[in-house]
Amino acid sequence: MIPASFEYERADSSDHALELLDRHGEEAKLLAGGHSLLPMMRLRLATPAVLIDVGRLTDLSYVRDDGDAIAIGALTCHEDIKDSDVLKQHCGIVAHTAGEVGDPQVRHLGTIGGSIAHGDPASDLPTVMLALDAQFVVRSSGGGRTLAASNFFSGLFETALEPTNLLTEVRVPKLSGGWSYQKFHHRAQDWAIVGVAAVQHNGGAAVALTNMSDVPMRAAGVEQALASGSDAATAATEAAQNTSPPSDPFGSAEYRRDLAKVLTRRALQEAMSS
C-alpha cells in the first residue's frame, strides 16, 4: 500500500512552517512523526496534496517546568514524554499514558502534538488533556492564541485548528492529587477499545473517556455524582451517560458502555488511593 502522490516540503523553522502553511492552505497537512497520518495515507483515507514536514523542528521538543504549569513542546516524542522526570514528578498521568501509546517503535517517532492535532477519539493523550483542562498554544502567521482542551476537539478527526495553524506547545497543570489512566485494548500495541482518565486536582475530580464518542469527552455524570458525595463505585455507574461509542469487531457499543463503567470505577479507585 503506497500513498497517493503528494508534494513534499520540509520546514526548517516554525516561521518557515507557517509560511508554507499560508502558501498551501487547505491542500496541505503537517507531518510530525507521521504515525497516524502515514497509515491513513497508505490506506488512501487521507490524500493531502502537500505534506509539510515539521519533524526537524527540534526546538519544539522539550518538557519544561514553567511555574504553575508544565510546558511540553508539540514535537516531543512519546518516548521522551514517558521518560520525563519533570512530568513523572508533577503530572505523572501524562508520562504514564504516553507509555501506553503504541509500542516502542511508534513512540520513538510519534509526537504529542501530532496525536492531539489528529483528533482521533480512540487516541489516549487527548483524553488525558481533556481531564487535565490542558491548554494548547497555537501559532499562525497572524499571531498566537491559546486554546482550552475543552474547546478543541470538535468532531471525528476534527479540531479547532485552522488550516494555517501550527500547534507549538501543550501546557498541563501540576497535579495536586492522584490520577489513573485505564486502557483496555486487544493486543498490547493497539488503540484503546475504551480508555478512562481520572485526576484529582484542587479538591475536585475530573474524568474523561477515550473512544466513547466522536471526540474524547468528559464523563459529566460521574463528575456530578462525585461532587454531590457519591463514592467511586456509585459514581462510576454514570459513566455511559450521553456517550455514543462505536461498534466494531473489538466490541459493540453496548459492551463499550459497560466497559466504561468498569474502567471508570477502577480509575477512580486508583486515583483516590494514590
Binding site: G34, L38, P39, D53, G55
Partner: peptide, 11 residues
C-alpha cells in the same frame, strides 16, 4: 528502533 514501513525515505 522504528518501523520503516511508516517512515518516508525523504524523512
Amino acid at each position: 528502533s522504528v518501523k520503516s514501513c511508516t517512515v518516508l525515505a525523504v524523512q
